[in-house]
């Protein structure tokens, strides 16, 4: 088990370097941040050169990258062009997005897995067909439509939830945006669980469990569910990263100043340090989430643990 973890950790290093270099390359090499800083006006050449020197922009790309990474490992993500330090931006953006993601993941697990188990056990019957149909609708409606719709119905019309959310909003106020964020993944989790349960329900070991005279709930939770959850865990794990970085639409709709919102602003204004900094953190989140999945995998399936 220890070697398994070490191997996974070592595999993360090249992935981290590769993906951060790629984003660094795209942001710095494909646009001129200094020109963007001045907007429509042409900058004074001497000032521009001075800024370039201060920001290491006159160095070759490889050197810039090394310098940047060196700074990051000292906890310095640089300064956004408006003078605010990127770490400060992160400190304000990440907590609310983290809470939003947490709400979304919990909803995915509770609602998605429950619905999936029920429809998987009653394959082909009323509940199964309606859940399948509903999930199909949810998957095909884009988030900005479902988001605005739910915001209007629950937030404005019935006023059950706040239509816009402050950065320090507690978890319960994040329920509605969390649901919007989770919706599509929730449908996938439902379908994945359903298929997995329906497939495994006919497995030999389930019949053995029945032949042992175990109560139905024990057959389902201890024998069937544990085997069926392996693909679902993979999906939810990788989804953590996707939800954190992909909350752009949801955060716009509910006016949440989180990661998605800051990234969006950063891209719009060609604010390179913000974009690279946030993406670097997101890459780390992805990698950690994947590591978590791999570890959970090994916990759920001993055949992997001893491989």
């Amino acid at each position: 088990m220890g070697r398994y973890v070490v191997r996974r950790l070592l595999q993360m290093i090249p992935v981290f370097i590769g993906s951060t270099f790629l984003i660094f390359f795209m942001v710095y090499a494909l646009g001129d941040p200094v020109a963007a800083m001045f907007g429509d006006r042409a900058p004074d050449p001497a000032t521009a050169a001075q800024i370039r020197r201060d920001l290491y922009l006159d160095q070759p790309l490889g050197k810039q990258y090394l310098h940047y990474m060196g700074q990051i490992f000292q906890g310095n993500f640089g300064t956004a062009f408006n003078g605010q330090s990127v770490t400060e931006l992160m400190a304000s953006a990440f907590p609310v997005t983290l809470r939003l993601t947490l709400v979304a993941i919990v909803l995915e697990m509770l609602v998605g897995i429950t619905l999936g188990v029920f429809s998987g056990l009653r394959r082909g019957r009323g509940i199964d067909t309606s859940v399948l149909l509903l999930s199909l609708i949810v998957v095909s409606v884009p988030t900005f439509v479902s988001g605005y719709l739910l915001q209007f119905v629950f937030g404005v019309r019935w006023a059950w939830a706040a239509p816009s959310v402050a950065p320090e909003a507690p978890l319960n106020e994040l329920l509605l945006p969390g649901l919007v964020l989770a919706l599509v993944s929730l449908a996938y989790v439902t379908r994945l669980t359903r298929t997995s349960i329906a497939e495994n329900a006919r497995a030999d070991y389930v019949r053995t469990a029945l032949a042992k005279g175990l109560p139905r709930h024990r057959v389902i939770t201890r024998h069937l569910l544990r085997n069926s959850l392996i693909p679902v865990v993979t999906f939810i794990g990788t989804d953590i990263g996707a939800l954190m970085g992909g909350a752009i639409v949801t955060e716009r709709i509910f006016n949440i100043h989180g990661v998605g919102f800051q990234l969006y602003q950063g891209i719009l204004r060609q604010n390179s340090p913000t974009v690279v900094g946030f993406v670097t953190i997101l890459v780390l989140v992805f990698l950690l989430a994947n590591l978590l999945v791999d570890l959970l995998y090994a916990v759920l399936d001993p055949r992997i643990r001893y491989a």
């Binding site: 469990a209 029945l210 032949a211 024998h223 085997n227 399936d301």
Partner: peptide
Amino acid sequence: RRIRGAKMAMIFQDALSALNPVL
């Protein structure tokens, strides 16, 4: 259910698939 497994038990053909792989 109480009789099953306790008073009458069953042995299946392929133990690899008949035993739960994760327990």
